[in-house]
């Protein structure tokens, strides 16, 4: 291997370059560094700016976001019945609680609960009989049973998740099984006594 030229890859003119810059070596080094750093930094900023649209394109698109809220007509749901609807591609349970179910839920001391919330925390003032929750088990995301007629409502008369045996009570609070928290209550409001906007 020829090793003599290794240190001076730019053989031609290398000597001249040294001569020309010998007088301002300190100055020259500093300016060179500045340009290299500036170019590198600028290119880095550019690369980051280009990366963003490529990452952001995986976020929900405009048409998906446009479906962020739904309106549900609850006029046909009798006490003791519930319906399943879809909001943001997820099932939502809308349940018209009977007076008995509400009493059962209120009767449970909060200290007994894994995720202490009262029925009043989970419903709206003036609409205490309307229990609106996501139909997604907080354990691993299965859909609990109990919203449709004749389904297993679990040991506590609310919902029962068949995947890993989580039991929810009439306020959709976790009472038994592996799920860590109560079924999630989404943001919603009553636009009229029979029309609910979720989201």
């Amino acid at each position: 291997m020829v090793s003599t030229t290794e240190a001076h890859p730019g053989a031609i003119g290398a000597g001249r370059m040294g001569a020309a810059e010998a007088g301002h070596e300190v100055d020259g080094v500093r300016r060179r560094d500045f340009i290299y750093v500036a170019t590198g930094a600028f290119a880095g900023v550019g690369a980051a700016a280009v990366a963003w649209p490529f990452i952001n394109q995986m976020n929900p698109s405009a048409d998906v976001l446009a479906l962020a809220s739904v309106e549900v007509d609850v006029s046909a749901i009798q006490p003791g019945q519930s319906i399943k609807t879809i909001w943001q591609s997820k099932p939502v349970f809308v349940r018209n609680l009977t007076a008995k179910e509400q009493q059962e839920a209120d009767a449970v001391p909060l200290s007994e609960l894994r995720d202490p919330e009262s029925l009043a925390d989970r419903t709206l003032e003036g609409h205490r009989n309307w229990l609106i929750t996501l139909g997604v088990c907080t354990h691993l995301g299965c859909i609990p049973l109990g919203a449709a007629e004749g389904e297993n409502k679990g040991d506590y008369g609310g919902y029962f998740c068949p995947c890993h045996g989580s039991h929810y009570d009439t306020a959709a609070r976790i009472r038994k099984g592996p799920a860590p928290t109560n079924l999630v209550v989404p943001n919603y409001m009553f636009k009229s006594p029979t029309l609910v906007e979720i989201g």
Binding site: G10, I12, G13, A14, R16, M17, A20, E21, R32, I35, Y36, A38, T39, F42, A43, G46, A49
Partner: peptide, 22 residues
Amino acid sequence: IFLGILTVLAWLTYRKVWAGVA
């Protein structure tokens, strides 16, 4: 505008790297 500035910087870098090299 960004690419314009980057091109100028790239050109200066190039000049600096090649300074004195025929």
